[in-house]
Computed example of a mutant assay.
Amino acid sequence: MPRPTCSQCCRPLAYCLCALVSRLDSRTRVLILQHPSEAGHALNTARLAALGLENAELRIGEHFADLADLLADPGYDARLLFPGDEAELPSQQRAEQRPLLLVVPDGTWRKARKLLYCNPLLEHLPRLTLPEGLESRYRLRKAPKVGALSTLEAITETLNRLEAPRRFDALLRPFEALIDGQIAAMGEEVFQRNHG
């Protein structure tokens, strides 16, 4: 018999993170396109981002038939958060500029690239990327490359830059509690041996 889970954070009820989730409003609208293979992942940081932001939406799939409608919102300028040759660093948005629709593919690098391939409209969006050298708090996973962040960390860092001086670090509270809980469950000795 499956364990009862929270309908919001999708964690087992005994490990529900909802009390740690801050509902933050943002000028930037965030659209997270999650590859289906990530949806059941124990450390689903995209779900935590969507729960923590009032102006965010999480879509799960490989192909999004209504993507053109989502990107055509006249109140927003769409940007893809994904590295590329012409990608720019996020910088503070001025009040007179239209707010951004930040489109964030969620999955392994391979799966995120597949989302772009399956949804060609994404390839044509101007891109934002984060600077090299950022350090992930995701202490349980070996990053495929230096500076790789979880989806939640990347969204938090991007919003901190776009909407400065406002900060969105409160989004990371359930993420940090989740990681601390995983480390406690495996024991400090096992954690140090495998991840320390």
Rank of each mutant, 00 (worst) to 15 (best):
P120T: 12
L13F: 09
R3A: 13
G187E: 07
L121D: 07
L134K: 08
L178M: 13
P4A: 06
A50G: 09
P83G: 01
N119E: 13
S26K: 00
T151C: 04
N119S: 12
Y138D: 02
L13I: 15
P126C: 12
P74N: 06
G181I: 01
S136R: 08
C6T: 07
G107N: 01
L128E: 07
L51K: 05
T151W: 03
T158D: 04
D169S: 10
P105G: 07
A19H: 13
A42D: 10
E153Y: 04
P12M: 06
E62G: 15
A143M: 08
T5F: 04
I32E: 01
R94C: 10
A56S: 04
S150E: 00
S150F: 00
R193I: 03
P2H: 15
P4I: 11
L33P: 05
E188Y: 12
S7P: 13
D180K: 07
D77N: 10
E88T: 13
I32D: 02
L70R: 13
E132D: 15
G196W: 11
F191W: 13
A170Y: 01
L53P: 03
A184G: 09
A46R: 07
R27Q: 09
G133L: 14
L100M: 12
L116P: 09
Y76E: 08
V21A: 01
R29C: 07
L80H: 02
P12G: 10
L17P: 00
